[in-house]
């Protein structure tokens, strides 16, 4: 008798000694299903499913990360630089899948207990440990791109700005039409009330304006107001601001002809960053850029001083 035949005989005996699938095994299955369903409902209720900003192919500030169960593969790519990358990307996963498919033909003996199959047991545990280690490494690897938090309302306004084709007439950041005014030159300094009225009906605030009435919905008006406000340099800074810069920043940063070059030159910072971003950065650089060696100024300066300084910096556009 081969071991196949012996096995079938023995299994037949074990089966007849066993209990019916229903209700004994099914009861365990049902309990586990209940547990899983409870956990899923809890996760869905408390965390829901996140949604980030809409996809933006032009964004160079994003830190792409795969879902956590693909993270080990993502991390493995870092171990094989240059031409060797295809080993981690293709050869290893391909070999693993082929191994899994062929496993029953590779390991054909009757031994089933883990201690009777030490090689496969170690191979399995080793692979698990490797995947676990890579996943951990991937999870703690620093995000090198700065995380820029966007104000969701202003961001909705920005999307609306593009879907309404405002750029046909208006310029922002030097791009757009010339029929209407350039919006990053002063429009953001208008009051919210004025902007709101303007979007409701341009004739109310600017009689004779060529801008059409857009029949905007209430929340669309709010989004656009927030977006236009975000283009503002933040309004005026006080006479204190240049002094604050001299005392706190000039030791590392250059502004015009003054200051040192330890940190980046800030002479044109206003063209790249808005006031809110600068403010967040001054308060705690590590939140936005973990590799920065700049100290945070929250607590060092008062909130008012930081606001003043941020407005001052946002106004630095090289003119």
């Amino acid at each position: 008798m081969t071991w196949h035949e012996k096995y079938l005989e023995r299994y037949k005996k074990l089966k007849s000694e066993g209990k019916p699938f229903f209700p004994y095994a099914v009861f365990k299955d049902t309990l586990v299903a209940l547990l899983i369903f409870g956990v899923l409902c809890g996760l869905a209720y408390y965390f829901g499913a996140e949604i980030e900003d809409p996809a933006d192919p032009t964004d160079s500030n994003y830190n792409p990360r795969p879902e956590w169960y693909f993270l080990f593969l993502f991390q493995a790519l870092k171990l094989f630089p240059g031409n060797l990358e295809s080993i981690a990307a293709i050869v290893l996963p391909g070999a693993a899948v082929a191994f899994l498919f062929l496993l029953p033909f590779i390991d054909r003996g009757p031994e089933r207990h883990i201690f009777d199959r030490p090689f496969l047991t170690f191979l399995g545990l080793g692979t698990l440990a490797g995947i676990g280690y890579l996943t951990y490494q991937g999870a703690v690897s620093p995000l090198t791109n700065p995380i820029i938090e966007k104000d969701p309302v202003a961001f909705a306004g920005q999307r609306l700005y593009s879907s309404l084709n405002c750029a046909y007439c208006h310029k922002i950041g030097g791009r757009g039409g010339t029929i209407g005014p350039e919006l990053d030159k002063g429009a953001g300094d208008e009051s919210e009330e004025w902007l709101e009225k303007h979007f409701r009906d341009p004739q109310l605030t600017s009689p004779g304006s060529a801008m059409p009435k857009l029949n905007l919905l209430e929340d669309e008006i709010q989004s656009l107001v927030a977006y236009i406000k975000s283009l503002s340099s933040g309004g005026g800074f006080t006479e204190e601001a240049p002094k604050l810069f001299q005392e706190n920043c000039a030791a590392c940063h250059k502004l015009g002809q003054e200051g040192s070059e330890v940190g980046p030159d800030l002479s044109l910072i206003g063209t790249a960053r808005d006031k809110n971003y600068i403010r967040k950065y001054v308060e705690d650089p590590s939140k936005i850029n973990p590799s920065s060696s700049m100290p945070g100024y929250k607590g060092q300066l008062t909130d008012l001083q930081i606001e003043d300084l941020s407005r001052y910096l946002a106004a630095q556009k090289g003119n």
């Binding site: 007849s16 000694e17 066993g18 209990k19 019916p20 229903f22 209700p23 004994y24 099914v26 009861f27 049902t30 309990l31 299903a33 209940l34 369903f37 409902c41």
Partner: peptide
Amino acid sequence: MAYDPTENEITRRSFLSRAIVGIGGLIGAV
């Protein structure tokens, strides 16, 4: 030795069956 349910077993079986229907019904209802 073939499987042979005793009287105790039969009570247990009907309890388990009812529990399965109950829990399954709960999940289904939610």
